[in-house]
């Protein structure tokens, strides 16, 4: 085991993936040790509590373990792929938690069905506006652009939901997303120059 682990440690992520696809636990362990911290941090940032972040990270890594063979190196790094799996799981978790939130005691069934989405919208958006400390690339953006990107990427809201939350036309929301991403990208390119 130790020998296999040492061998796996010398491999790049892209070389580990085929081994993970062949169900090699040591390769998977190395992958977790490299990216588990970032994955858990991202999950925590999205779902906002530790137990849920743990569940989300676990599910994400299990799905990577089971579908390792599906990783496509042409589409980016293993780390980005892995973090996008975590992000999607975390967003799914937020949505299902909202759907399970305690509902008011209405007799009207249609009212019951409509509530979860609205609850999620209001509570999540509020939590994101008040609690989220915008760091790194996002922190350098003008507030209106940072806010739409925050709500989309970390809140899992669609552009039309964001338009409703912020009371803006959809075109404005999409425009701000574009401007914000362009700005982050521009800074990255400058940093490289």
């Amino acid at each position: 085991m130790a020998v296999r682990r040492e061998k796996a440690e010398r491999l790049a992520d892209e070389e580990l993936m085929p081994l993970v696809g062949r169900k090699d636990p040591e390769a998977f362990e190395v992958l977790y040790d490299r990216h588990g911290g970032a994955a858990y941090s991202l999950a925590y940032r999205i779902v906002g509590d530790r137990a849920a972040a743990e569940e989300v990270t676990q599910e994400a890594f299990i799905s990577v373990w089971r579908s390792g063979a599906r990783f496509d190196a042409a589409r980016g790094s293993v780390r980005s792929w892995l973090l996008s799996v975590v992000r999607n799981r975390a967003i799914d978790f937020l949505r299902s938690r909202a759907a399970k939130a305690p509902k008011l005691d209405f007799d009207d069934e249609s009212a019951l069905e409509q509530r979860p989405a609205e609850e999620r919208t209001e509570e999540e958006a509020l939590r994101r506006e008040t609690a989220a400390e915008l760091r790194g690339a996002l922190g350098k953006l003008p507030d209106p652009q940072a806010k739409v990107i925050e709500l989309a990427y970390f809140g899992g809201f669609s552009h039309s939901e964001i338009a409703r939350i912020l009371g803006l036309p959809m075109g404005t929301v999409k425009g701000r997303m574009r401007l914000g991403l362009e700005k982050i990208r521009g800074e990255m390119a400058e940093g490289l120059a």
Binding site: S41, R45, A137, F154, I184
Partner: peptide, 12 residues
């Protein structure tokens, strides 16, 4: 630019 977002998260 999108891929840098998860990297900017505070480490836990």
């Amino acid at each position: 630019a999108v891929q840098t977002l998860p990297e900017s998260v505070e480490r836990t």
